[in-house]
């Protein structure tokens, strides 16, 4: 079993298939990325820098935008990713 899953080539987030410890290295499409923060199983990691307001992709689709600057290798969840939908 791979450590992480990148569902679509457009994705800048990957899903951890097991819990990953801070400082561990993951390999995504041949590139080694050092993980910043403990990431629980099935949670997400950024595989590139995403500036505040930048779009986050999973399934090749928009799943939200960065609420703060996200660095490559960061654990991505409710603390740095929010819905991009505007209901008004």
């Amino acid at each position: 079993m791979e450590t992480v899953l990148r569902i679509d080539p457009k994705d800048n987030l990957v899903t951890c298939l097991r819990a990953v410890k801070s400082g561990e290295e993951i390999t995504v499409d041949g590139e080694k990325i050092k993980v910043r923060g403990d990431v629980p199983q099935f949670h997400k990691i950024a595989i590139e820098d995403i500036p505040k307001g930048g779009i986050c992709y999973k399934y090749g689709q928009v799943i939200g935008k960065a609420s703060v600057d996200i660095k490559k290798g960061d654990y991505v969840h409710v603390h740095n990713l929010v819905s991009a939908k505007d209901f008004n």
Binding site: K58, Y59, G64, H77
Partner: peptide
């Protein structure tokens, strides 16, 4: 959902 790792309504819907 969040504890499991889903962050936004978009992510949930796309699944």
């Amino acid at each position: 959902n969040k504890e499991g790792g889903l962050t936004t309504i978009e992510e949930k819907s796309l699944g």
